[in-house]
Nucleic acid binder design. Structure first.
Lengths: 161, 161
DNA sequence: TATTGTTATACTCTATAACTATA
DNA sequence: TATAGTTATAGAGTATAACAATA
């Protein structure tokens, strides 16, 4: 027998399809992220929320759901969890008491910094076979595909300073 | 107002993460594939099965589940559907009547050819913003990441003759 | 009456466990 | 007793629909 050579290889036809790889890898990475966050008592979605709020508070929960393409009803539980840990703050809009204004707290900023390290660690591990240039190349290619599909993926022109 | 500029852009932090793009795009493409197959009365998983069997019949269902990383119990329904349409054939192994030998029929080969066109069409549409060289580059980068994670993604050295 | 956030319900998908027949 | 395939069950995750407060 030859234990080095896997007997149950994937069909070459599938492996040679970019779409198949994209689907499988995307799913694998997502799963890995979810598990890592869960192991620390959080959810990966909560990271997205904090990252969004770091760009400024939102005047309504619906704005968050809209930007991240989350279901408004499933957002409630996420915000509840974040609020009970003191990472975000919900305040009723005095002009329209139906709306909740959501903002990041100081503790939330600190947690976000920790999340960044976690995400970076997983991503580095995942992209390990690629050097820095190749990672940039991969990112650029994916970003162009993403922007084509949804204009909301455009990066702000002057992100820095 | 300025309807061209989306007010609910994704946070730059997320868009600048390769992992985020990979996860989102992978999911989006998978969903698109699933819907396209479903619209024709099939499932995208069935394409994987046919592609695998095109490389040769399998001596047991478990080998298929193993190669494609499907749950054996969920594979049953897939094979049932394929068999009832005459696309595959199941034969009991006379030496071990517990095993089912699974092979592609002539009709199955024809259906596989049709599936290939469908998949190619969706993939072309998805990768539209990239030219041929860039698509090759993207595929090569993804493949290297995939192989690192799971050796079964290795493409056979001499795939063609 | 319409909208915001919330809660409750239903549905899909997957993963686990039990079952049958063969060995 | 163990294994291959099958069927049944349970659980997570997601989407839909009803609800209460405010406009």
């Amino acid at each position: 027998m030859n234990p080095e050579v896997p007997t149950n290889c994937l069909p070459a036809e599938l492996v040679s399809r970019t779409g198949f790889l994209l689907g499988r890898l995307g799913m694998a990475l997502k799963t890995q992220m979810m598990e890592a966050f869960e192991a620390e008592g959080f959810s990966a979605y909560q990271y997205s929320v904090l990252a969004l709020l770091d760009e400024g508070p939102r005047t309504a929960q619906a704005a968050i759901a809209d930007a991240l393409q989350f279901d408004p009803s499933q957002l409630v539980a996420m915000l509840d969890a974040l609020e009970s840990r003191g990472l975000i703050e919900r305040k009723r809009d005095p002009n329209d008491r139906r709306r909740q204004m959501v903002s990041l707290t100081a503790a939330g900023k600190r947690q976000l910094a920790a999340f960044r390290k976690l995400v970076q660690r997983i991503e580095d591990d995942f992209l390990e076979p690629l050097d820095e240039d190749e990672r940039r190349e991969l990112h650029e290619l994916l970003l162009r595909v993403a922007v084509q599909r949804d204009a909301r993926y455009v990066l702000p022109v002057a992100a820095k300073s």
